[in-house]
Simulated assay, not measured.
Amino acid sequence: MNQDQNQLSTVFHVTHWKAGSQWLHRILRDIAPSRIVDPQLFERQFLDTPLVTGAVYPTVYVTKEQFYSVNLPANYRKFVVIRDLRDTLVSAYFSIRYSHAIIHKSLAEWRQRLESISLEDGLLMLMEEWLPLSANIQRSWVDSGETFIRYEDLLHGDTEILQDVLIRQCDIGVSQDTVEKIILKNRFENLTNGRKPGDEDRMAHERKGISGDWQNYFTPLVTDEFNRLFGRLLVETGYQLAEPGIR
Protein backbone atom coordinates (compact mmCIF):
# COMPACT_ATOMS: atom_id res chain seq x y z
CA MET A 1 0.00 0.00 0.00
CA ASN A 2 1.33 3.44 -0.84
CA GLN A 3 1.84 6.23 1.66
CA ASP A 4 -1.09 8.26 0.35
CA GLN A 5 -3.57 5.48 1.09
CA ASN A 6 -2.24 5.16 4.63
CA GLN A 7 -3.25 8.80 5.14
CA LEU A 8 -6.82 8.32 3.89
CA SER A 9 -9.78 7.58 6.10
CA THR A 10 -10.81 3.95 6.41
CA VAL A 11 -14.51 3.95 5.54
CA PHE A 12 -17.08 1.38 6.68
CA HIS A 13 -20.58 1.11 5.22
CA VAL A 14 -22.48 -0.70 7.99
CA THR A 15 -25.91 -2.02 7.16
CA HIS A 16 -28.15 -5.09 7.09
CA TRP A 17 -29.35 -7.26 4.23
CA LYS A 18 -31.78 -5.86 1.64
CA ALA A 19 -31.25 -2.22 2.65
CA GLY A 20 -29.83 -0.99 -0.64
CA SER A 21 -26.46 -2.49 0.19
CA GLN A 22 -25.56 -3.48 -3.37
CA TRP A 23 -26.61 -0.07 -4.69
CA LEU A 24 -24.26 1.63 -2.24
CA HIS A 25 -21.60 -1.00 -2.92
CA ARG A 26 -21.59 0.01 -6.60
CA ILE A 27 -21.37 3.69 -5.70
CA LEU A 28 -18.44 3.11 -3.35
CA ARG A 29 -16.68 0.88 -5.87
CA ASP A 30 -16.99 3.55 -8.56
CA ILE A 31 -15.73 6.23 -6.17
CA ALA A 32 -12.72 4.32 -4.84
CA PRO A 33 -12.14 1.16 -6.93
CA SER A 34 -8.58 0.56 -5.76
CA ARG A 35 -9.54 0.82 -2.07
CA ILE A 36 -12.50 -1.58 -1.95
CA VAL A 37 -12.27 -4.63 0.30
CA ASP A 38 -14.71 -7.14 -1.15
CA PRO A 39 -17.41 -8.49 1.19
CA GLN A 40 -17.21 -12.13 2.20
CA LEU A 41 -19.70 -14.58 3.66
CA PHE A 42 -20.15 -14.23 7.41
CA GLU A 43 -18.27 -10.88 7.30
CA ARG A 44 -14.91 -12.62 7.32
CA GLN A 45 -13.31 -9.62 5.59
CA PHE A 46 -14.17 -7.55 8.67
CA LEU A 47 -14.39 -9.92 11.63
CA ASP A 48 -11.63 -12.43 10.84
CA THR A 49 -9.05 -10.50 8.80
CA PRO A 50 -6.78 -7.61 9.82
CA LEU A 51 -8.32 -4.38 8.57
CA VAL A 52 -6.62 -2.40 5.82
CA THR A 53 -5.89 1.22 6.68
CA GLY A 54 -7.28 3.63 4.09
CA ALA A 55 -9.56 0.99 2.54
CA VAL A 56 -13.29 1.22 1.86
CA TYR A 57 -15.47 -1.58 3.27
CA PRO A 58 -18.93 -1.79 1.68
CA THR A 59 -21.83 -3.87 3.00
CA VAL A 60 -20.51 -4.67 6.46
CA TYR A 61 -23.40 -6.57 8.03
CA VAL A 62 -22.58 -6.28 11.73
CA THR A 63 -24.11 -5.19 15.02
CA LYS A 64 -22.64 -2.36 17.04
CA GLU A 65 -21.06 -4.89 19.38
CA GLN A 66 -19.44 -6.74 16.50
CA PHE A 67 -18.23 -3.50 14.93
CA TYR A 68 -16.40 -2.37 18.03
CA SER A 69 -15.04 -5.85 18.77
CA VAL A 70 -12.35 -5.55 16.09
CA ASN A 71 -9.15 -3.52 16.07
CA LEU A 72 -10.31 -0.45 14.14
CA PRO A 73 -7.80 1.80 12.35
CA ALA A 74 -7.08 5.11 14.05
CA ASN A 75 -8.61 7.28 11.33
CA TYR A 76 -11.78 5.35 10.58
CA ARG A 77 -15.20 6.66 9.57
CA LYS A 78 -18.47 4.79 9.32
CA PHE A 79 -22.04 5.32 8.23
CA VAL A 80 -25.00 3.09 9.08
CA VAL A 81 -27.94 2.47 6.73
CA ILE A 82 -31.20 0.78 7.75
CA ARG A 83 -34.50 0.05 6.00
CA ASP A 84 -38.11 -0.51 7.01
CA LEU A 85 -38.02 -4.15 8.10
CA ARG A 86 -41.28 -4.85 6.31
CA ASP A 87 -39.79 -3.86 2.95
CA THR A 88 -36.62 -5.69 3.98
CA LEU A 89 -38.69 -8.86 4.42
CA VAL A 90 -40.55 -8.52 1.12
CA SER A 91 -37.34 -7.78 -0.76
CA ALA A 92 -35.72 -10.82 0.82
CA TYR A 93 -38.65 -13.02 -0.17
CA PHE A 94 -38.36 -12.18 -3.87
CA SER A 95 -34.57 -12.21 -3.83
CA ILE A 96 -34.29 -15.58 -2.14
CA ARG A 97 -37.06 -17.13 -4.20
CA TYR A 98 -36.09 -15.79 -7.63
CA SER A 99 -32.94 -13.76 -8.17
CA HIS A 100 -30.19 -14.23 -5.57
CA ALA A 101 -27.24 -16.38 -6.54
CA ILE A 102 -27.05 -19.52 -4.44
CA ILE A 103 -23.93 -18.70 -2.44
CA HIS A 104 -24.72 -20.84 0.60
CA LYS A 105 -26.71 -23.99 1.25
CA SER A 106 -29.16 -22.09 3.45
CA LEU A 107 -30.27 -20.04 0.43
CA ALA A 108 -30.88 -23.21 -1.55
CA GLU A 109 -32.94 -24.66 1.28
CA TRP A 110 -35.01 -21.50 1.71
CA ARG A 111 -35.63 -21.25 -2.04
CA GLN A 112 -36.81 -24.84 -2.19
CA ARG A 113 -39.20 -24.26 0.70
CA LEU A 114 -40.52 -20.96 -0.69
CA GLU A 115 -41.33 -22.62 -4.00
CA SER A 116 -43.58 -25.11 -2.21
CA ILE A 117 -45.62 -22.76 -0.01
CA SER A 118 -47.81 -19.69 -0.41
CA LEU A 119 -46.47 -16.15 -0.36
CA GLU A 120 -48.09 -15.56 3.03
CA ASP A 121 -46.49 -18.67 4.52
CA GLY A 122 -43.19 -17.73 2.89
CA LEU A 123 -43.21 -14.31 4.51
CA LEU A 124 -44.05 -15.83 7.87
CA MET A 125 -41.27 -18.37 7.51
CA LEU A 126 -38.63 -15.77 6.59
CA MET A 127 -39.90 -13.48 9.33
CA GLU A 128 -39.07 -16.17 11.84
CA GLU A 129 -35.88 -17.60 10.34
CA TRP A 130 -34.24 -14.88 8.22
CA LEU A 131 -35.36 -11.42 9.39
CA PRO A 132 -34.06 -11.58 13.01
CA LEU A 133 -30.46 -11.17 11.85
CA SER A 134 -31.26 -7.84 10.17
CA ALA A 135 -33.44 -6.81 13.11
CA ASN A 136 -30.57 -7.49 15.52
CA ILE A 137 -28.26 -5.25 13.51
CA GLN A 138 -30.87 -2.48 13.50
CA ARG A 139 -31.62 -2.83 17.18
CA SER A 140 -28.00 -2.66 18.23
CA TRP A 141 -27.40 0.65 16.45
CA VAL A 142 -30.72 2.17 17.50
CA ASP A 143 -30.19 1.22 21.14
CA SER A 144 -26.71 2.73 21.03
CA GLY A 145 -28.06 6.16 20.17
CA GLU A 146 -25.70 6.48 17.21
CA THR A 147 -26.92 8.16 14.05
CA PHE A 148 -28.15 6.17 11.08
CA ILE A 149 -29.48 6.82 7.59
CA ARG A 150 -32.79 5.44 6.41
CA TYR A 151 -32.86 3.81 2.98
CA GLU A 152 -36.16 5.54 2.24
CA ASP A 153 -34.55 8.95 2.69
CA LEU A 154 -31.79 7.95 0.29
CA LEU A 155 -34.36 7.10 -2.38
CA HIS A 156 -35.57 10.70 -2.35
CA GLY A 157 -32.35 12.53 -1.51
CA ASP A 158 -29.44 10.38 -2.65
CA THR A 159 -27.14 13.12 -3.93
CA GLU A 160 -27.56 15.48 -0.99
CA ILE A 161 -27.32 12.80 1.71
CA LEU A 162 -24.49 10.80 0.18
CA GLN A 163 -22.40 13.83 -0.70
CA ASP A 164 -22.63 14.96 2.91
CA VAL A 165 -21.93 11.49 4.29
CA LEU A 166 -19.11 10.51 1.97
CA ILE A 167 -17.33 13.85 1.65
CA ARG A 168 -17.90 15.68 4.92
CA GLN A 169 -18.44 12.86 7.39
CA CYS A 170 -16.29 10.12 5.89
CA ASP A 171 -13.68 12.26 4.13
CA ILE A 172 -13.52 9.70 1.34
CA GLY A 173 -11.07 11.80 -0.66
CA VAL A 174 -13.04 12.43 -3.86
CA SER A 175 -14.49 15.69 -5.18
CA GLN A 176 -18.15 16.61 -4.83
CA ASP A 177 -18.64 16.66 -8.61
CA THR A 178 -17.23 13.16 -8.94
CA VAL A 179 -19.44 11.80 -6.16
CA GLU A 180 -22.53 13.40 -7.73
CA LYS A 181 -21.81 11.94 -11.18
CA ILE A 182 -21.32 8.47 -9.71
CA ILE A 183 -24.54 8.68 -7.69
CA LEU A 184 -26.51 9.69 -10.78
CA LYS A 185 -24.90 6.92 -12.81
CA ASN A 186 -26.07 4.35 -10.27
CA ARG A 187 -29.70 5.40 -9.99
CA PHE A 188 -32.35 2.72 -10.53
CA GLU A 189 -33.28 3.75 -14.08
CA ASN A 190 -29.67 3.73 -15.23
CA LEU A 191 -29.02 0.30 -13.73
CA THR A 192 -32.14 -1.22 -15.30
CA ASN A 193 -31.93 0.19 -18.84
CA GLY A 194 -34.61 2.77 -18.22
CA ARG A 195 -37.04 0.78 -16.06
CA LYS A 196 -38.86 3.19 -13.75
CA PRO A 197 -38.93 2.72 -9.97
CA GLY A 198 -42.04 0.69 -9.23
CA ASP A 199 -41.85 -1.29 -12.49
CA GLU A 200 -41.22 -4.78 -11.14
CA ASP A 201 -38.87 -7.42 -12.49
CA ARG A 202 -38.95 -10.32 -10.05
CA MET A 203 -35.95 -11.97 -11.65
CA ALA A 204 -33.71 -8.91 -11.28
CA HIS A 205 -31.69 -7.90 -8.24
CA GLU A 206 -32.99 -4.36 -8.79
CA ARG A 207 -36.55 -5.65 -8.51
CA LYS A 208 -38.64 -2.53 -7.91
CA GLY A 209 -36.67 0.31 -6.35
CA ILE A 210 -39.39 1.84 -4.15
CA SER A 211 -40.38 2.08 -0.50
CA GLY A 212 -43.64 0.90 1.04
CA ASP A 213 -43.94 -2.13 -1.23
CA TRP A 214 -44.71 -4.31 1.79
CA GLN A 215 -48.29 -3.00 1.69
CA ASN A 216 -48.85 -4.94 -1.55
CA TYR A 217 -47.97 -8.27 0.08
CA PHE A 218 -48.68 -8.19 3.81
CA THR A 219 -51.88 -9.97 4.78
CA PRO A 220 -53.61 -9.27 8.12
CA LEU A 221 -51.92 -12.37 9.56
CA VAL A 222 -48.47 -11.26 8.39
CA THR A 223 -49.11 -7.73 9.69
CA ASP A 224 -50.14 -8.95 13.13
CA GLU A 225 -47.21 -11.33 13.43
CA PHE A 226 -44.76 -8.66 12.29
CA ASN A 227 -46.17 -6.16 14.80
CA ARG A 228 -45.81 -8.73 17.57
CA LEU A 229 -42.19 -9.53 16.78
CA PHE A 230 -40.81 -6.26 15.45
CA GLY A 231 -43.39 -3.53 16.04
CA ARG A 232 -41.47 -1.81 18.81
CA LEU A 233 -38.26 -1.75 16.79
CA LEU A 234 -40.15 -0.42 13.78
CA VAL A 235 -41.40 2.56 15.77
CA GLU A 236 -37.99 3.17 17.36
CA THR A 237 -36.43 3.42 13.89
CA GLY A 238 -38.96 6.06 12.85
CA TYR A 239 -41.46 4.06 10.81
CA GLN A 240 -45.22 4.04 11.23
CA LEU A 241 -46.78 0.89 12.64
CA ALA A 242 -49.65 -0.59 10.65
CA GLU A 243 -52.97 -1.08 12.42
CA PRO A 244 -53.53 -4.64 13.71
CA GLY A 245 -55.53 -6.94 11.48
CA ILE A 246 -55.12 -4.87 8.30
CA ARG A 247 -52.49 -4.30 5.67
Rank of each mutant, 00 (worst) to 15 (best):
L191P: 09
D213W: 11
R187H: 07
T159I: 08
N193L: 15
D177W: 11
L123N: 12
R202H: 08
S106C: 10
S175C: 08
E236I: 02
L191M: 14
E160A: 09
E206D: 14
S144Y: 04
M125G: 03
P197V: 01
G122S: 12
L126D: 02
W141I: 06
T237H: 01
H205S: 08
D121H: 11
S144D: 06
I137D: 07
K196C: 08
T159W: 05
L234Y: 00
K181R: 15
T192I: 12
I149F: 09
V235L: 13
E129S: 13
R187V: 14
S144K: 01
N216I: 00
E109T: 15
V179A: 02
L131V: 03
P220W: 08
P132F: 15
Y239G: 12
S118Q: 06
D199M: 14
N190W: 03
I167H: 09
R168V: 09
Y217I: 04
P197N: 03
I167R: 14
T147G: 14
D177G: 03
S144T: 08
E115K: 08
K105N: 08
V142N: 02
H156C: 07
H156K: 11
E120V: 04
D201G: 00
K208Q: 07
C170P: 00
G194L: 11
G231R: 14
A108P: 01
Y151D: 09
I161M: 11
Q176A: 12
L131H: 00
R111T: 02
E206H: 15
K196P: 06
R111A: 04
N186I: 07
G173E: 09
A135S: 05
E206S: 11
L233D: 07
Q163L: 12
Q138F: 03
G209W: 01
L155C: 00
I102R: 06
I183V: 07
G212S: 11
K181A: 14
V165M: 05
S211M: 15
V142F: 07
W214L: 01
D171R: 15
I102D: 04
D199F: 15
V174Y: 07
Q169A: 05
T178W: 10
L107K: 05
L124T: 03
D158G: 04
L114W: 03
E200T: 07
Q215C: 11
L155P: 02
I137R: 01
D201N: 01
G231V: 15
D153W: 07
T223N: 07
S116P: 03
Q176H: 01
G209K: 01
I102T: 05
E109Q: 06
G122K: 02
D153R: 00
D213N: 12
G212D: 06
W214Y: 10
Y151W: 07
F226M: 02
T147R: 15
I137S: 00
L233N: 13
D121T: 11
E236G: 03
S211K: 10
R202M: 11
R113Q: 02
E225I: 11
N216W: 02
Y239K: 10
S106I: 08
E189S: 15
R202D: 09
V222N: 01
V179I: 13
L119M: 09
G231A: 05
L133Y: 08
D213R: 00
V222T: 05
H205T: 09
